[in-house]
């Protein structure tokens, strides 16, 4: 064999090997539309068959952005009922969440601006996060790993025009929150949070989400609905006591980091709904590494004294070195602060 022939053969083999290798590395779609989650004009966010919209009773506050949530289970797979933690979705599941601002919160028909769609995909190696940023034309969203800051403007529910920045997280920031023992996990969709009504397209009335999931075979092993725990809606007093609503708000907004397996475990502060130790919950607990986040106050929570509680100070601050949560908030959520102040005020 001549040298030339050996070279040619080598080149051929190399090409073959490279092709094989490229087949094996999964290519991440560059555009949201590549997934086929939505039918028609994807900015309308009409889910394709198999993609099911859902909502949470008390969601995470994200700078007043509204969210559309969808779940896509792998075909013929279901979730097994478990009411102690977030549901254990099978490999192949994708959770889809689109963030947007209505142009006018008082009148949704005035249109909206889609900002980003986040995907959490359950692969055989674990959950993976991807962020797609909506383009100015609003006809597609493009993959972005490093995050972005966007200026947004809207008319709020009081009729005031508001301008603010909105942070689209980078991939590390995603797992900054979606993190249990350094493993990426979903945060929201637990039985407690899903136990509420939703108006499904094509049906005249609203239906309980758990019942819908059970009826359509998405959820198995579910007890009678009356036996399923239910998280209150934080701003609807008829859905739960002050304590219950405040604890649920803290659970979804803080406990993804502030739990014994989360990124904020170094602080010793645990804001999970299930926490029973008053000190771990912050009551008369001295801060550990709060720095100027302490706001000159001595304890996380001083019963009866919201104005002396670090928790209130940090939720009120918008200074990145003092505020909580550390990410995803640029404005003050006045309404939840009122709830938490009332909660601390009522403490003995």
């Amino acid at each position: 064999m001549s040298v030339k022939k050996i070279f040619l053969l080598g080149a051929l083999l190399l090409t073959f090997w490279l092709t094989l290798a490229s087949w094996q590395t999964k290519v991440v779609p560059e555009k949201l539309s590549d997934y086929g989650f939505f039918i028609g004009d994807i900015s309308r966010q009409h889910p394709a068959p198999g993609v099911v919209p859902y909502t949470l009773n008390t969601p995470l506050f994200s700078d007043y952005a509204e969210k559309l949530r969808f779940i896509k289970l792998p075909s013929r797979k279901s979730v097994i009922y478990n009411d102690t933690a977030v549901l254990n979705f099978p490999v192949g599941t994708t959770l889809i969440k689109t963030f947007y601002y209505p142009n006018d919160f008082r009148n949704q028909s005035k249109g909206r601006r889609l900002l980003e769609t986040r995907l959490l995909t359950h692969e055989s190696e674990g959950w993976k996060a991807l962020v797609y940023v909506w383009n100015t034309e609003q006809d597609d969203a493009l993959l972005e790993v490093a995050g972005e800051n966007k200026a947004v403007q809207y008319v709020d529910d009081q009729g005031n025009t508001r301008q603010q920045n909105y942070l689209i997280p980078n991939l590390n920031q995603c797992s900054g929150c979606h993190n249990r023992k350094e493993v990426m996990v979903p945060i929201g969709p637990s039985v407690r949070q899903l136990n509420g009504n939703f108006i499904y397209k094509g049906s005249p009335a609203s239906e309980n989400q758990l019942l819908y999931w059970q009826r359509t075979g998405m959820l198995t092993g579910m007890p009678a609905l009356a036996d399923c725990p239910k998280a209150p809606v934080w701003n609807k007093p008829e859905t739960g006591s002050l304590n219950d609503r405040a604890r649920t708000w803290l659970d979804i907004n803080c406990a993804h980091c502030h739990n014994p397996d989360g990124p904020a475990m170094t602080s010793g502060l645990n804001l999970s709904y299930s926490e029973k130790n008053p000190t771990a919950l912050g009551i008369l607990k001295s801060p550990v590494a709060a720095g100027r986040g302490s706001g000159g106050r001595a304890f996380d929570i001083v019963p009866g004294k919201p104005e002396q509680s670090i928790l209130i100070y940090r939720l009120h601050s918008t200074d990145p070195g003092a505020m909580m949560p550390e990410l995803g908030r640029k404005v003050v959520h006045t309404e939840s602060l009122d709830l938490l102040k009332a909660w601390i005020k009522a403490m003995q």
Binding site: S286, P287, V288, A290, G291, R292, S294, G295, G296, R297, A298, F299, I310
Partner: peptide, 8 residues
């Protein structure tokens, strides 16, 4: 000492 109060 210029540490914010509350810190050890």
């Amino acid at each position: 000492n210029f540490a914010p109060e509350g810190n050890i």
